[in-house]
Amino acid sequence: MLRTVALVVAVLTVAASCARLEQRDDLQGLRSTDALSPHAVGKPRTPNQILDKIVAGALGYIKKLRWDVSKRVQNGLSDLPFQVDSDGKSSERFSIKNAKITGLGSLRRSKSARFSPDKTLLTGTVLLEDVRVSADYTVTFAGVGEAPAQVVSGRVTEREDKLFADVTVLLSNLVPQRIVSYKVRSGHDELESVTNLEGNKMKTLHTAGFRKALREVLDRTMALNMKVQINKAIKDMKSA
């Protein structure tokens, strides 16, 4: 009888020790990911660990492309319609070339990720910080009413302090399968620098055009290019 009791006590002690070790591992994983770094564990189990591993994989592809240094942007056009006065409407055309984006290597998790109740979905947010787009610009304004026609060229840089993407990923036994939803939202942005506008009476209007056009470039990069790299990382985890 004493032997049986001793054996039961020993089994319970081992089980309790294993539970404590597992709990400690989970806490360590949460501590490492709560620091919001792209740290990834070998076999992720918690929501943060899984999303961090996805981000780490995406960063690997970003670095292979050297986008962590800079990414070239295709030349583009953007029209900004506006009301000049009570009699007429017009628009200015903003074109860019020799454009590049920096800061894409800052991709990381934002806040804590979470599972759905049945653990078939992972929901979280990733972000880029201090991402910039710099380009040679040309603004063409046809002129209307008392506003004169003009063409201005120079160099411009737009910065977004934070650029977010809210992501939902389908899971199977805690293994990522595919992206279910991916929505981009912007934080604070500002026109960091612009040349050849000093003394220009339409500076305020041109500045609004720059910000609108270049924000669209950054948002599109997060919505398309970053999503592709995240999806590659998910496919790698699925195939592994």
Rank of each mutant, 00 (worst) to 15 (best):
V144T: 07
E22V: 10
W67T: 10
S17P: 10
M202A: 02
L27E: 04
V69N: 14
R3D: 03
S172N: 11
H206W: 10
R114I: 13
S193F: 08
Q28D: 14
S91T: 08
G57S: 04
M222V: 09
R215L: 05
L214E: 01
L104I: 00
V169L: 07
V151P: 05
D34S: 00
V9T: 05
L205W: 08
D25W: 14
K238Q: 15
G199S: 11
P44Y: 11
K63L: 12
L171F: 01
V180T: 06
L21E: 09
R109Q: 14
K43T: 14
A40Y: 09
F141D: 01
S134K: 00
R93H: 11
M222S: 07
T207K: 12
K97Y: 05
L12M: 13
S172C: 11
V69C: 14
G76A: 12
K43V: 13
L197N: 07
L197A: 07
K100Y: 14
R132P: 10
R114C: 13
V144R: 05
T195P: 10
T138P: 05
T168F: 06
S70K: 07
S186K: 08
L104K: 03
T102Q: 14
E216Q: 03
R93Y: 10
A40G: 12
G105N: 09
V156K: 00
A142E: 12
K63D: 13
N75P: 11
E216N: 04
R185W: 02
Q28N: 13
L224F: 08
L214A: 01
K235S: 15
T120D: 06
A35L: 11
